[in-house]
Write a protein that binds this DNA or RNA. Structure first.
Lengths: 217, 217
DNA sequence: TGTAAATTAGGTACTTATACTTATTGATTG
DNA sequence: CAATCAATAAGTATAAGTACCTAATTTACA
């Protein structure tokens, strides 16, 4: 039996999730909590869940802080974030804080249950498929795959990359010239060459090109 | 009933997968194939699978090529790659070739079946959890810049994104103003605001910021 | 060792962006 | 209903970048 504490500030949402979980024979919601404090109270009262499912936007103490606290005192308890779509950005923080699972509230009941079982049985972190696909799309969009994005035979020299990088950091031609102990006109010349060879119109477009093609970061 | 063709060059592996799938009431393996040619033959013979599960390292014609061929002739058939660990790198090619699912052979039977159902029922691409975690770790290992910098509560309005996008394409303030039927001074104002709120020094740095933070492409 | 490419540098004219300021309008929201 | 904010717009002055041009070194390499 997988014992769960459900931490979620909104009653409706919490009840909905509970209904879903109660249908499963191998899952038991042993307690619910409205906020982080209640969770910590439950734990110090001696309750021993296998998994704590928590929202991010809990009142007072948010989900990430809760993760950190629980993690340090009860390292054997697994933590799963069930996040609103808008909170996708917390994914990095959550995993750095030691969460085992991260799902968006858009998961269907099958995935919710599957994810919980995966965390408990396979003992592996779980990321919901929608988030996985977002990461995948990021990967697909990344110009790292030099096969088909960096197609054009544009050769950019080391010096040019150096200058491009400084330009992208916001330095002016004069400042770059000073840094590289050369003339402002030289930098201007390089910038011109780069704009010409990349087929861009100005620095803004050049920088976009350079970042998208991983010439610079 | 989810009808499946299983393409895999190694008999032992293929038989193993088949055994797993045959246990499921809603999944039927309607045919097996040793190589890509056999798959194409089966399809031209009129077989209509919902999903083709294929390995990458098929003899003669590899899995990616098979994906492409099937995709162009039978766009309604979903494709799933079941890949050896060593072939992880094909993930990008596979998705670009239109695969719906990608799993490593390290998936357990629950995930294999779950993934198949997910593709078929939810009609969404599926990436196995191990790969999702690898992507996640990539994200976590990345220095602050690439993904999570703009999480610093910087709100960028729709209008600003629109302008940012045009700026990054190389248009001048005047040109952008003409496109948007507004004044050059307005665009200048927006550009200033953006530079201020992103903490950058000029347009070059602003565009770099915007691209790295996926505000624009 | 000769040639191509990279890096350097300058002239001149012109365009564009930036830094500071202020101010009005309309929409949203507590 | 007041407050906030996004979007609008402008003045003024200066800084920076762009479009042409030419041309001298140095470096890489075949």
């Amino acid at each position: 039996m997988i014992k769960i504490i459900l931490a979620e500030g909104h009653n409706v949402v919490r009840n909905g999730i509970r209904l879903l979980l109660d249908k499963e024979a191998d899952i038991e919601v042993i307690a619910e909590a409205n906020n982080a404090k209640e969770v910590l109270q439950l734990l110090s009262d001696g309750l021993k869940p296998d998994i704590i499912i928590t929202a991010i936007n809990l009142p007072h103490i948010n989900g990430i802080e809760l993760l950190t606290k629980v993690r340090s005192t009860y390292p054997e308890i697994k933590l799963a974030v069930l996040s609103m779509v808008e909170e996708e950005k917390y994914i990095i923080q959550a995993f750095k804080a030691g969460t085992t699972g991260y799902m968006l509230k858009s998961v269907n009941e099958f995935e919710l249950v599957y994810g919980i079982r995966h965390m408990y049985l396979v003992n592996e972190r779980y990321l919901c498929n929608e988030l996985a696909l977002r990461l995948l799309d990021k990967l697909l969009r990344m110009p790292e795959n030099k096969f088909d994005v960096h197609i054009k035979d544009i050769e950019i020299s080391k010096r040019e990359v150096e200058i491009l990088s400084l330009v992208s950091e916001g330095f002016t031609n004069q400042e770059i010239a000073d840094k590289l102990f050369t003339s402002k006109r030289t930098i201007e010349g390089h910038r011109q060459d780069l704009i010409a060879k990349t087929g861009t119109r100005n620095t803004a477009a050049l920088i976009r090109y350079a970042v998208l093609n991983s010439i610079i970061e």
